[in-house]
Each structure stands twice: as C-alpha cells, then as structure tokens.
C-alpha cells in the first residue's frame, strides 16, 4: 500500500503551529511511518511543488507572491487543511485590515518602508482557495492535527467540534473565573480544543481558538461592559488573535457602535 503523501506549508505566521507536528514526540516517528512527509521545511524535507494527498497550510496571505503559492498548492493537493488562526482567519496580523492604509502601517513600524512589499490585508486561506478542513487555534495542538490525520487515514471526514470552551472547562472541573472573579473570559464564544488551558490557571480565555458555533457577541459584550470594561476594551477582546473571524468582527463592530 502506498503511503499518503503529506506536505506542510508555511505562509505569514510564526511557525508555532508546525510545532504541533515537531513536538508530537513518539507520535512523530509513527507519523513518519504512516505517511510520506514530502514537504516540511522546518523538519528538512523540501519539495514545495510536489503533488500530495494532504497539504497542511500554516499562515495567512499577506503578499502577492503568497497568492500565487497557495493556488499552486491547491492545485497540487487532494485535501487542503488550514492549521491555526493565521491560516483559518487571517491571524493576529489581520488587525491591520481596514484600519489604516497599508503604507501608513508600514511606515509606523519599519525604518525603511521602501523595502517592504506586502498587501494591505492579511487574509485567511479560504478567501483565496477552497479549503477542505480547518483547524483553529493559536497554536493548534498535536492532538488536533493527529486526530485529523487519523480520520483521513481511516478514509472518513474529520469530526468538527465547534462547541464553546465552557463545556470543556466545566468538564475539567475548573471554577469559572468570570463568575467568581469577574475576569473578562471569552470562553462562552470560543471554540473548544485547547483543553481550557487558561482558565485552568486562573486566567480568562482570550479567544485564540476562534468563534464557537453560535456567538452571541452582543450578550457577552454587554456582560463584559458590566465588569467595568470600556467599549474599546470589549472590542479588543474580540479583535485579537482572530480579528478576521466574521463573528468576532461583527461583535466588535456592534459593541463599538453601541457605546460610541
């Protein structure tokens, strides 16, 4: 039996999601036996233009060259799977979208802006090519990528879980930080998958896994206002890691509009 061919591509991102593979430990060795890792620059294999069964894509589209690259990858892959917030919603760098003109941004950051050539926006892969499956998270976990691979190896479509984080948080036996301490927790509007990491350590969730299935941004926004956050603070809770996610952008726009 021929092994499925897998590629892991990087676009505008921090490389953190690729660590879900590199940090998988013993599972990485097993993975190498189950699939043919034909392109994974961070681990050594470089064949960016190879035809593959599954292409994992990390990072968002921020340059004209990246638009060409992603179209090429799409044409060469049977399944295209985005991994992480950047690839799935545009990432933290999508904060620049629509605020200032790209040139103003660049000038405010770089001493010699003339050397920078990038698009005005940071956008999700799905805005450019068809995406088969999305894995949210900043970063994604080994468990997520390996479970998805396992499902594809079984030749069934992966299971999507867009439940709110609160369900996992309660199952873990955590005490709610919003109810006991008034922390501005985003758990009720955030997709599960991280294992309720922040609340477990007494921190409020900051929505790095993106929107859950049903986001009632208005109701949570009002609650956060009641905790003493200004409307700008509330908007920032939504517009952070996944600023490009529609449900969050709507919630932030509503909050800012309502209170301004």
């Amino acid at each position: 039996m021929t092994k499925p061919r897998v590629a892991i591509h990087k676009f505008s991102s921090c490389d953190g999601c690729q660590l879900a593979f590199l940090n998988a430990g013993a599972a990485l060795l097993e993975l190498a036996q189950l699939v043919d890792l034909v392109h994974f620059a961070e681990a050594g294999a470089v064949q960016p233009d190879a035809a593959v069964d599954i292409a994992f894509v990390e990072g968002s589209i921020t340059t004209a060259h990246e638009i060409e690259r992603i179209q090429n990858i799409r044409a060469n892959s049977k399944y295209l799977v985005t991994i992480g917030a950047c690839a799935t919603s545009g990432g933290i760098q999508a904060l620049r979208n629509g605020k200032m003109q790209g040139a103003d941004w660049i000038a405010s950051v770089y001493a010699s802006p003339q050397f920078i050539s990038s698009l005005d926006t940071s956008t999700a892969i799905a805005q450019h090519v068809k995406v088969d499956y999305e894995l949210w998270g900043c970063p994604v976990t080994s468990r997520q990528v390996l479970q998805l691979l396992r499902d594809l190896l079984f030749a069934v479509r992966p299971k999507v879980n867009a439940d709110p984080l609160c369900l996992d948080c309660k199952r873990a036996g955590n005490v709610c930080v919003l109810v006991t301490r008034g922390e501005p927790c985003m758990g009720p509007v955030t997709r599960t998958g991280c294992g309720a990491l922040c609340p477990q350590f007494g921190r409020a969730c900051y929505a790095c896994f993106g929107p859950s299935e049903l986001v009632n941004g208005h109701a949570l926004g009002q609650r956060l206002s009641g905790l003493g956050l200004t409307s700008a603070d509330v908007a920032k809770r939504f517009l952070f890691i996944n600023a490009g996610a529609e449900a969050y952008a709507e919630a932030a726009a509503f909050t800012e509009h309502k209170h301004d």
Binding site: D151, A155, V156, R157
Partner: peptide
C-alpha cells in the same frame, strides 16, 4: 455522514 461513508467502504 462520516460513519456511513466509512461503512460504505
């Protein structure tokens, strides 16, 4: 669904 499509194979 995902189970029935697997059963079909």
């Amino acid at each position: 669904g995902r189970v029935t499509e697997g059963l079909a194979k």
